[in-house]
């Protein structure tokens, strides 16, 4: 499946579990500029719900897409403000 947005940075949190995927995503987003997109690669199955929940409750970020692969979960988050 192709993505129609440009990825600025990729964050690898494979092998890490709650709360690391969310906390590290937040830290990586803080280092980006408005309009840039972070790709997060995780193996934590809870990251699908957790990163969505975080993005929904946090200002200045938008979850563009989530993909579930074989044991790998990919999240695309844009910094919007």
């Amino acid at each position: 499946m192709s993505t129609e947005f440009e990825i600025t940075e990729t964050l690898d949190v494979k092998g890490q579990s709650c709360p690391m995927p969310v906390v590290k995503t937040k830290q990586a987003i803080d280092d980006l500029s408005e309009g840039e997109v972070l790709k997060v690669v995780a193996t934590d199955s809870g990251s699908m719900s957790d990163i969505e929940g975080w993005a929904n409750s946090t200002d200045g970020v938008e979850l563009l897409d989530q993909q579930e692969g074989e044991d790998v979960y990919k999240h695309y988050v844009e910094k919007t403000a």
Binding site: C18, S57, T58, D59
Partner: peptide, 11 residues
């Protein structure tokens, strides 16, 4: 600690 560090990620 898990709740606190996650809540901080929520700003």
């Amino acid at each position: 600690l898990i709740l606190a560090s996650t809540a901080a990620a929520f700003d």
